[in-house]
Design a binder for these strands. Structure first.
Lengths: 135, 135
DNA sequence: ATGGATGCAAATATTTTGCATTTTG
DNA sequence: CAAAATGCAAAATATTTGCATCCAT
C-alpha cells in the first residue's frame, strides 16, 4: 500500500548550491527567482532541479514554504521550530514570529466545532520600516 | 494614471447562476467544480465566465476566496464581515470563525517590527465531526 | 555497480487574454 | 445604442513527469 519508498537523499552539488543561495537571502523567493540567481552567479542548475531540491529541503525542514494571496509559492531558509511569518510586501524581507496564543486558540475553536487533527496557516503582510521610509 | 475604469457590473443570467449555486453549497469549491456542477444542472455557462463571475463576486464581497496549502484557489458564498475559516479536509465543510484577538495580535506584532499597512491570512484545517465518525 | 539525481523536452493544470458576437440597461 | 458580458480558442503561468544519462555512495 505504501509508495516504493524514496530512499535517502544524496548530497549533490546542485542541492548544495540551492541551499547556499537561500542562506544568503533574507526573504522569500520563488523557484524562478532562485533559478535565475543561480544562473547569474554561474551555478549550472536546471529549473526542474531547483523545484526538486526545494521539495527535498522542505521535507527536511531546512526550508520553509509559503504562498502569497496571489498563489505564488515562495521559499526561504528558516529555523526548524514552528513559527509564522511577517513579510514585507515590497522587499519580501521576513521576520519569523512565534504565536503560542494563536496556536492554542486555533485548536480550541476547532474543538468547539467538533474538528480534530487541527492544523493552520497564518501569514502577516505589511510594509517594513525601510520600505516605508524609502517610499 | 488610473485604469480605464471598469464600469458598473450588470446582472446576467450566468452571474446569477453561479451565485445561486454557491448559495446551495456549504463549503469551498474550485472554479472547475462549480463549472461542472452548473453544466450538470443544465446551466450553460463557460468556464471563463465562471472565473470572471467569481472575480466580480469576490470584489463585491459576496463571495470569499481562499487557498489550500497546495495552492488550489477555492470560493464560497459567505458573510460580508471579516472572518476566517475552519475547513474540513475531507468534505470541505466550512465554519466561519471570528478572531478579534488574532487580528489585534497581528497588528501589534507587526508594529513591534516596524511594519505598517498590516494585513494577514489565516485558515484552520481539520477533520469535522461527521467525517471523523464516518471514517 | 546501483539507484538516486539531473536536465531537457513534453505533459499537466490553472488562470488569463484576444476578439467577434450577444445582451443589458 | 453604448458598454459590459459571454464563450470560444489561444496564450501565459506554474509545476510535474518521462526518460536517457550522470554521479554519489
Amino acid at each position: 500500500m505504501s509508495q516504493p519508498t524514496p530512499g535517502i537523499p544524496r548530497n549533490t552539488r546542485q542541492r548544495a548550491e540551492v541551499l547556499a543561495l537561500l542562506e544568503e537571502i533574507d526573504g522569500f523567493r520563488s523557484p524562478q527567482q532562485l533559478h535565475t540567481a543561480l544562473r547569474d552567479r554561474g551555478a549550472r542548475v536546471g529549473l526542474t532541479t531547483v523545484y526538486r531540491a526545494l521539495q527535498v529541503l522542505v521535507e527536511a525542514t531546512e526550508v520553509d514554504t509559503m504562498r502569497l494571496p496571489s498563489g505564488e509559492q515562495l521559499f526561504r531558509r528558516c529555523s526548524p521550530t514552528h513559527h509564522h511569518h511577517l513579510v514585507c510586501r515590497r522587499c519580501n524581507r521576513t521576520v519569523e514570529v512565534a504565536g503560542p496564543a494563536v496556536e492554542t486558540w486555533a485548536v480550541a475553536v476547532a474543538a468547539q466545532h467538533g474538528f480534530t487533527e487541527v492544523s493552520h496557516t497564518l501569514e502577516i503582510f505589511g510594509c517594513c520600516a525601510d520600505c516605508t521610509g524609502a517610499r
